[in-house]
Amino acid sequence: MEIKVLGTGCAKCKALEKATKEAVEKTGVNATITKVEDIIEIMQFGVMTTPVLVIDGKIVVKGKVPSVDELSKLLTK
């Protein structure tokens, strides 16, 4: 599974990255997490609010930081 966290470095973006890491550890799914900070690359996804969570090319979260439990559900779906 390929996970991307999009965000230019605001506090929420860091929080989402951290929560995603925790969720991956908790669920034990096999995933690589990359942080995308380049704004041009972020814009390719057509989003206007950050942070964004992309799983296998699909946007699953944008503009907010879900709890680790909610993220775990998204990861195991």
Binding site: T8, M48, T49, T50
Partner: peptide, 17 residues
């Protein structure tokens, strides 16, 4: 519209684009 200054740039770019 929900807005936070940390999203000002993606929002600006999204509008202009």
């Amino acid at each position: 519209t929900p807005f936070c200054s940390c999203s000002a740039i993606p929002l600006f770019l999204g509008f202009v684009e």
